[in-house]
Design a protein around this nucleic acid. Structure first.
Length: 525
RNA sequence: GGCCCUAUCGUCUAACGGUUAGGACACAUCCCUUUCACGGAUGAAAUCGGGGUUCGAUUCCCCGUGGGGCUGCCA
């Protein structure tokens, strides 16, 4: 079981490129890497792959770093972010770890060195082909039904000729001399994977000696940083043979690979903004808790082994709620699914509900206060908010829901008089009203007046849920529960769905309760 | 088009080659209930197709088919 304990220490990396907001799929990749590192007593390395100068942006890097921390993960080597998550710019305290710098934009000397090695050993060469030429080559091959690959035109240029072109400052790229061979590797999730590199062609590995491309810089850094396992998305599967060949050309040792199944949109296409939110920050802003996102994404393409003794019991309900700590314990790369997994927002919502339920009133308050108007948290309102949160707790799916659910605690919304009448019309899905209740405003009016009378008698000190219920419920035995409680609750909330009337009364207090009842009475008169 | 990966309820998934194919989400019905939500109970719902191997395939192999990824001087 512990066969790897004597081998090289586990060092994994999460290597995002800061070219967009932290993607939820990337977040899962980071999570699986982190779980694997923590579980194997290994190191988690964060490396920023910002070689694409046009598209990279420090703001995105910050978003990624914030996101990782928000989810509850950390890293042992990489950029240092302080308590405020500000990325340090002081050279002396920019990075932690002995294999830095951890931003590729600062590692150009290293890539240049290996590029030179490849060039010197004739394993790479300068290519001066103009883009237009390459494009027409490509089209021609495609038209013939062939796999488009570089023709190799510049592969065997004479040394003198190359030097002349370089001296003339002719634009060039650097291509890797792709050996034509069968590449086979053992994927930790997929087992044997085979590629024929003859189909690939001499790929570009750098735009110039100081502008390496992903396949190259990524390979070099994984070696330089002594990465033991590369855990990444399946979209990189076809990059792996290329990188293995580069490793061989450079004399690097082999690395273990694990390619994670992709997260799919509901129509099974690649998850894209067309169909859904893809950025972690969007989910955060909608009021999903980090624990829910972690739990949900962990279960997208992975599932823990059943406990031995429970396996036999057919009626056994599997546990699905896992903390980060439990995930570290239970995670297993070998149990990662091979096929893509559809992102099911309803399940995420369910996880969120579970974690909201676990929150103490105080913690929930701390989280919700960022999702409500500031007015609600000021002065006396803070107390109202506290009780309102407790009253609505079971109804909150996302933190953002609360504002809409609970606004009536602060301001009575306008509502239709008809809402005060019980029973309510039954509405079928076809939206046709089947049963129009006798618009018996009289009954609601009488009942509300009765309630005003009774509530007037109640001491302010007794305005709590339990006491109010004890004092007012007996009335329903005479006047009917629905007939009495429904108009009361509507008068208080102005909504057709809300917490119970006694809970609301406790929050509103005697004065406001009576004021709202009188508003309802006015409406009915 | 080519190459690679992949396939159990609608979705996420469980099942040493032998199970009434299990669970979760969503859905439906019922109970609780003034409403909504919560909670409880019940139900409907799947092994892509065809060949092998085997006494026996969800499980192993092959061929189709479906889905996905890659096919950049992006990562």
């Amino acid at each position: 079981m512990m066969e790897s304990s004597i081998k090289t220490p586990v060092r994994v990396r999460f290597a995002p490129s800061p070219t967009g907001f932290f993607h939820i799929g990337s977040a899962r990749t980071a999570l699986f890497n982190w779980l694997f590192a923590r579980q194997n007593n290994g190191k988690m390395i964060l490396r920023i792959e910002d070689t694409d100068k046009e598209r990279s942006n420090p703001a995105f890097e910050k978003d990624i770093i914030d996101g990782i921390k928000w989810l509850g993960m950390d890293w042992d080597e990489g950029p240092i972010a302080d308590a405020q998550n500000q990325i340090s710019n002081l050279k002396s305290q920019k990075y932690i770890g002995e294999f830095g710098p951890y931003r590729q934009s600062e590692r150009l000397d290293i890539y240049e060195k290996y590029l030179k090695q490849l060039l010197d050993e004739n394993k790479a060469y300068y290519c001066f082909c103009p883009k237009e030429q390459l494009e027409s080559d490509r089209q021609a091959m495609l038209a013939q039904g062939l796999a488009p690959k570089y023709s190799g035109r510049c592969r065997n240029l004479q040394k003198e000729e190359v030097q002349k072109k370089l001296d003339n400052n002719e634009p060039f790229v650097i291509r890797f001399k792709m050996p034509e061979t069968e590449v086979e590797f053992q994927d930790l999730i997929r087992d044997k994977v085979k590629f024929n590199s003859a189909l690939i062609g001499d790929m570009v590995i750098a735009k110039n000696s100081r502008s390496p491309l992903f396949v190259f810089s990524n390979t070099v850094d994984d070696y330089e940083m002594k990465i033991s396992h590369v855990i990444r998305g399946e979209d990189h599967l076809s990059n792996t043979p290329k990188q293995i060949l580069i490793q061989k050309a450079l004399g690097f040792n082999e690395i273990k690979y694990a390619h994670l199944p992709l997260i799919l949109a509901p129509d099974r296409s690649k998850m894209s903004k067309r169909y859904m939110e893809t950025s972690l920050i969007d989910y955060k802003n909608q009021g999903y808790l980090p624990e829910a996102i972690v739990n949900f994404t962990a279960f997208l393409g992975w599932h823990p082994a059943l406990e031995q003794n429970l396996e036999k019991d057919k009626s056994f309900q599997e546990k699905e709620i896992f903390s980060l700590k439990e995930l570290i314990e239970k995670f297993n790369l070998k149990r990662v699914q091979k096929a893509g997994a559809v992102f099911n927002i309803e399940k995420l919502e369910w996880f969120n509900i579970q974690y909201i339920k676990k929150l103490s009133s105080k913690n929930l308050f701390e989280k919700i206060k960022y999702f409500v108007p500031t007015k609600w948290t000021e002065g006396e309102n803070e107390k109202i908010l506290t009780v309102a949160i407790n009253a609505e707790k079971d109804r909150i799916k996302k933190l953002t829901d609360f504002k809409e659910l609970a606004n009536f605690f602060f301001d009575l919304p306008d509502y239709d008089v008809k809402l005060l009448v019980w029973p309510q019309p039954i509405v079928l899905p076809s939206e046709e009203i089947v049963k129009e209740p006798e618009i018996n405003k009289e009954k609601s009016l009488a009942n509300l007046k009765l309630l005003v009378e009774e509530i007037n008698k109640i001491f302010k000190a007794d305005f709590n849920k339990e006491k109010l219920e004890k004092l007012l419920m007996p009335l329903t035995e005479v006047w009917g529960r629905g007939d009495l409680l429904w108009p009361l609750r509507v008068a208080l909330s102005g909504k057709k769905a809300s917490p119970g009337p006694f809970e609301i009364m406790e929050v509103l207090g005697k004065e406001e309760t009576l004021r709202r009842l009188n508003i309802a009475i006015e409406k009915l008169e």
